[in-house]
Design a protein around this nucleic acid. Structure first.
Length: 482
DNA sequence: AAAAAAT
C-alpha cells in the first residue's frame, strides 16, 4: 500500500516540528490540518536572557511558524477538496519538494526551473500520484496554478531512462500546447543524461517500421493514435503513465474524444491515468469518472479568485466594423504589454489580422489552417515578445502560457456549437492573462442584442460584474491601461 | 465552429 512512503514523510514532518520546538519561541500552537496529518504543537520555555544570535533564530523560527500556520489555515477553508479512492489511507499533503523523496536529478530539475515550494495543487496531487502502487487521478485547478509541472513531475519520477522505449505518454489538444509542455518536460528532465522526449505531432514523420526509442512521448491525439495503432511506432502496452492535459476537451469534444478513448483502450490495465484541467463541466465530471478506473479526485475550485485578478469589460458596438474601430482605438493601450485577440472562426481571424495590418498595426496571426512550421514560428516569436499582439482562434484558448500577456480581447464571444455561451472556453481564454496571480485585463466586444445576451449569461454564470467600456473616451482607455 | 489525421 501507499502508506509506507506516506508514513516516512509524516515522520520527517514530526522531526521538523521537533527541531522547531528546540528553538526559543513564544508559546504557539499550530492548528491541525483538516486531516490531522500535519498537526504539531510547539511549546517552548521562555528565555529571559537572549543573545543577538538567539534573536535571529527566533525571528527565523517565527517566520517559519507563520508560514506553517498560514498554509494550514488555508487548507481549512476547503479551498482544496480531495476525494480518495482508499479512504483508510492517510490524507497527506507536502509542503516541500524534499518530502517527496524524488530522485536527486529530478529534484535538481525542479529547482533549476525556479520552483521553491509546491503550489496548492502540487501539495495535494504529488503525494497521491507518486504513491505505490500508482494511483489514478482527476484534478481540477485554475489556470496558472502549476498543473503542468505536477504531471510532468509524475511522469519523470516513473520513467526508467535506461529502457529505450516509450513509458510515459501525454496528450495535448493542440500542436502549440504540445510544444509548450514538451519544453517543460525537457527542462525538468535535463539532469537525466539518457532521457529523451519524442513529439508525436503533425508534420513529425518517422521511417516506416521504425520504433520510438524515446522514453516519454508528448503529442496530439491524431498522431499519437496513428503511432500506436496503424504505424506501430509505439508499443502502447509498455506505457506506465498516461496523461490527458486539458482533459475535459480531450474526453468530451467530438474528434478528440474518439481518439483519446481509443488510445486509452490500448494501454495496459495497470497504466496510471492522470487527467488535468482548469474546467470540468458537470456532465464531463461524470464521464471522466467513468473513463478513469478507481479515480482519486482533487478539486481546487476557486474560480472567483482567478476572476478577481482579471478586470473584465465589454465594448458596445453595432457590427463587425465598429468592433474593428473600437479595437483600433484600444491598440495603443493593449500594446503596453502583450495581448491576445480571440475570434470565433479562422476566417474572421485572418480578416482581422489583415485589416489591423492595413491600419499600420503590427499583429501576428495563428490558426489551425496554417502550416505547422509557420505555427511553431509564430508562437515562438510571440513567446519571445517579438510580436506584441496575437490574433487567433480557440486553438490558443487553452494552456498557452506567455507571462507578458496582460490583455485578452474577445473579438467574438466564445459560443458552443449550439450558439450557447461557452463558459469553460471563456474562463480558459481570459485565463491566458493574470497568470500566477498577476493582474490582467479582459475586453469583450459585443455587436448585437444576441451577443449582449450571451455576455449577460456569462456574467451570470460567473456572478461577476463585467463593466461597460467606452473606447471613444480616451480617459477611459487611459484608466484601463494604467 | 475549431481542433485533431500519414486517413
Amino acid at each position: 500500500m501507499a502508506t509506507d512512503s506516506w508514513a516516512l514523510a509524516v515522520d520527517e514532518q514530526e522531526a521538523a516540528a521537533e527541531s522547531l520546538s528546540n528553538l526559543h519561541l513564544k508559546e504557539e500552537k499550530i492548528k491541525p490540518d483538516a486531516n490531522g496529518a500535519n498537526g504539531a504543537v510547539v511549546k517552548t520555555s521562555a528565555n529571559t536572557e537572549k543573545t543577538e544570535e538567539d534573536e535571529k533564530e527566533d525571528r527565523a523560527a517565527q517566520s517559519l511558524l507563520n508560514k506553517l500556520i498560514r498554509s494550514n489555515l488555508v487548507d481549512n477553508t476547503n479551498q482544496v477538496e480531495v476525494l480518495q479512492r482508499d479512504p483508510s489511507s492517510p490524507l497527506y499533503s507536502v509542503k516541500s519538494f524534499e518530502e517527496l523523496r524524488l530522485k536527486p536529478q529530478l529534484l535538481q530539475g525542479v529547482y533549476a526551473m525556479g520552483f521553491n515550494r509546491p503550489s496548492k495543487i502540487q501539495e495535494n496531487a504529488l503525494p497521491l500520484m507518486l504513491a505505490e502502487p500508482p494511483q489514478n487521478l482527476i484534478a481540477q485547478s485554475q489556470s496558472g496554478t502549476g498543473k503542468t509541472a505536477a504531471f510532468v513531475l509524475a511522469m519523470l519520477s516513473q520513467v526508467e531512462p535506461a529502457n529505450n522505449h516509450p513509458q510515459c505518454l501525454c496528450l495535448s489538444p493542440t500542436y502549440e500546447l504540445a510544444l509548450q509542455t514538451g519544453k517543460v518536460i525537457e527542462q525538468m528532465g535535463k539532469f537525466y543524461p539518457e532521457l529523451k522526449l519524442a513529439y508525436a505531432v503533425r508534420g513529425n514523420k518517422l521511417e516506416r517500421g521504425q520504433k520510438v526509442g524515446e522514453q516519454i512521448v508528448i503529442g496530439t491525439p491524431g498522431t499519437v493514435l496513428d503511432w500506436c495503432s496503424k504505424l506501430k511506432f509505439i508499443d502502447p502496452k509498455k506505457i506506465k503513465v498516461f496523461v490527458l492535459d486539458e482533459a475535459d476537451v480531450m474526453i468530451a469534444t467530438q474528434g478528440h474524444q474518439d481518439q483519446s478513448i481509443r488510445i486509452q483502450r490500448m494501454l495496459p490495465r495497470n497504466c496510471q491515468m492522470l487527467l488535468f484541467s482548469a474546467t470540468f463541466e458537470d456532465s464531463v465530471w461524470k464521464f471522466a469518472q467513468k473513463v478513469v478506473p478507481d479515480p482519486n479526485i482533487i478539486k481546487l475550485k476557486r474560480e472567483e479568485e482567478t476572476l478577481d485578478t482579471i478586470k473584465q469589460y465589454y465594448v458596445l458596438c453595432n457590427n463587425r466594423e465598429e468592433k474593428f474601430q473600437a479595437l483600433c482605438n484600444l491598440y495603443g493601450a493593449i500594446t503596453i504589454a502583450q495581448a491576445m485577440i480571440f475570434c470565433h472562426t479562422r476566417k474572421t481571424a485572418s480578416w482581422l489580422a489583415a485589416e489591423l495590418s492595413k491600419e499600420g498595426h503590427q499583429v501576428a496571426l495563428l490558426s489551425g489552417e496554417m502550416m505547422v512550421e509557420q505555427r511553431a514560428a509564430v508562437i515562438e516569436r510571440f513567446r519571445e515578445g517579438k510580436e506584441k499582439v496575437l490574433v487567433t482562434t480557440n486553438v490558443c484558448a487553452r494552456g498557452i502560457d506567455v507571462e507578458q500577456v496582460s490583455v485578452v480581447i474577445n473579438f467574438d464571444l466564445p459560443v458552443d456549437k449550439d450558439g450557447n455561451p461557452d463558459n469553460e472556453t471563456y474562463l480558459h481564454r481570459i485565463g491566458r492573462t493574470g497568470r500566477f496571480g498577476k493582474r490582467g485585463l479582459a475586453v469583450n466586444m459585443v455587436d448585437s442584442k444576441h451577443s449582449m445576451n450571451i455576455l449577460n449569461r456569462i456574467q451570470e454564470h460567473f456572478n461577476k460584474k463585467i463593466e461597460r467600456l467606452d473606447t471613444d473616451d480616451l480617459d477611459e482607455i487611459e484608466k484601463i491601461a494604467n
